[in-house]
Design a binder for these strands. Structure first.
Lengths: 170, 170
DNA sequence: CACAACTGCTTGCTATTTGAAAGCGGTTTT
DNA sequence: AAAACCGCTTTCAAATAGCAAGCAGTTGTG
């Protein structure tokens, strides 16, 4: 038997769903890295999530409606994980987390460029990004603007700059 | 030896500081409930935190600069815990958490009234609240407007309404 | 001045969670 | 035919969570 919620406070209930060290990492990778398969999430994880933990989190996130899982038509063993409307609406929360982290933790430049863009773009950019996520993960129409592409381009740019620096230094 | 950070991603680093089931609960109680003493945090906790967990979290939060601890001049054994500038800047994050929880979790009316006010007030209200927290916890001047009082009044009102309902129903 | 209540914790102790590593039956690619 | 890849599961050790009791010192009360 699972125990009921500790209290009806919205902050507490959000914490009970997402307040562990991995759930939001998985959602972040699906959202910003567009990782849709188990192996992608496992092998391309910056933080090195263990396979059993990933399996457990995927199960729990699907059970709580934050991810959906369906078969990949191109491969009998592959599953595709997608964001749902509730997890797409985590964009403002993740943007604030990124903004706070950028100010108060020792972030690396490449990995914080996306947070910087989201912070500077503010709610209008968040909404455009959410619209695009609805296109990529639900069956919403494709919006004109690609925030995802913009974020990805900026990230790749930052990586290239870092690597150029490293190459030049040797 | 404590291991280094898993990655330099701002979301990950924020999660490493606050991503557990209790840290943000403690900060929430200090911030919105103005609980400044260990016993207040322990006995008035809606979620029923255990004494050893509370002691551990207070230590860690002080060590990471999210709370400060000083002696209470009025009582030799009492300690006063205060928010710091970094934890005051968690207001937008907590507001977003409350807003998301209100939409996607089974919140109780009394406990979500504050989240509702913060959501409707938006960034201007958050800033006013943060100014007041700087007055209550740091030594900033007292601002004209009391968001804390407004939130508290609305909460007490909601509790009174709920109790009136209960009394009328019997 | 005796005594109860209160102060911020700590100390066992057990139950749950985390995590690394290896493995598994089946599918697809080479 | 063989190798690589698929989404996990299993095993076991280590870390963490959580309950209940207790503690030395301080303060309020009759």
């Amino acid at each position: 038997m699972e125990p009921g919620p500790r209290s009806g406070c919205p902050i507490n209930l959000t914490l009970e769903m997402l307040g562990d060290r991995w759930s939001l990492i998985v959602i972040r990778d699906v959202m910003f890295g567009n990782r849709r398969h188990y192996r992608e999430l496992l092998n391309q994880s910056d933080e090195g999530i263990a396979s059993n933990i990933l399996a457990d989190r995927l199960k729990r996130l699907v059970a709580s409606g934050l991810l959906s899982r369906r078969d990949d038509p191109s491969h009998k063993q592959k599953a595709i994980y997608s964001l749902t409307e509730p997890s797409i609406e985590l964009v403002p929360l993740l943007a604030q987390m990124g903004a706070w982290g950028r100010r108060h933790t020792p972030v690396s430049p490449e990995l914080s460029i996306r947070a910087e863009i989201l912070e500077k773009g503010g709610p209008p950019l968040w909404r455009a990004f959410m619209d695009e996520l609805r296109h990529l993960h639900l069956d919403a129409p494709k919006p004109e603007r690609s925030v995802f592409g913009q974020l990805q381009a900026a990230y790749l740019d930052a990586v290239a700059q870092r690597d150029a620096q490293t190459t030049a230094a040797k």
